[in-house]
């Protein structure tokens, strides 16, 4: 393990902080819930730091971290209870492999999303903020918002759809899509 007091540690923290969101999204696309993704990303942080000596700074950090994340996710998958709805191993591997090729695309999407989020009406914005409060389930939130989970999900689905359309339009306009 590299020395925590070194300049290297600061570099690592900086890199990890910059790409943590992308990494989290990558892991989330392999595992069934955000809880699972958070667990694995935490593990990835540890492993990546341990192996940071082996990272070649002239290459892409996110691609390097995704390789680690892919292995951690596969390992985590094997520990999951059998009744959990988790992707078959070969499908998971395929998803991971393809995702690693899309990091640039994700980056421009994220930039577009920021703009799109600002255009979202306040009420929807509030719903989104509520929906992603860590440690609460959508069912609890639906109760709190006074609607049934079904319609809560439906609203979330609609918001995601609106944002996705907005992101795609933005990217098409910028000629990146």
């Amino acid at each position: 393990m590299p020395d925590p007091e070194s300049q290297q540690y600061e570099t690592f923290v900086e890199l990890f902080a910059r790409y943590e969101g992308d990494l989290r999204a990558f892991v989330r696309s392999l595992l069934p819930t955000w809880y699972d993704a958070d667990e694995v990303v935490q593990q990835v942080a540890l492993v990546a730091w341990r192996k940071f000596d082996q990272f070649d700074p002239s290459t892409s950090f996110i691609k390097w971290a995704c390789v680690i994340a892919r292995f951690e996710a596969l390992g985590y998958r094997r520990k999951l209870a059998r009744d959990r709805l988790v992707f078959r191993e070969d499908l998971m591997a395929k998803l991971a492999e393809e995702a690693a090729e899309e990091t640039e695309e994700r980056k421009s999407e994220n930039a577009a999303l920021e703009g799109c989020l600002k255009k979202l009406p306040a009420a929807q914005r509030e719903l989104v903020t509520m929906a992603y409060t860590p440690g609460t389930t959508t069912k609890e939130l639906a109760n709190r918002a006074g609607v049934k989970p079904g319609s809560f999900y439906m609203r979330l689905n609609r918001i995601r759809k609106v944002l996705l359309d907005c992101v795609e339009t933005t990217m098409a306009q910028e000629g990146t899509a």
Partner: peptide, 21 residues
């Protein structure tokens, strides 16, 4: 699969945005 990753990345973006707020 591609559409799936795109969809989940929107979800990830929403979550991250909300957390920071």
């Amino acid at each position: 699969r591609r559409a799936f990753r795109k969809y989940l990345s929107i979800d990830a973006g929403l979550r991250q945005g909300s957390e920071s707020v």
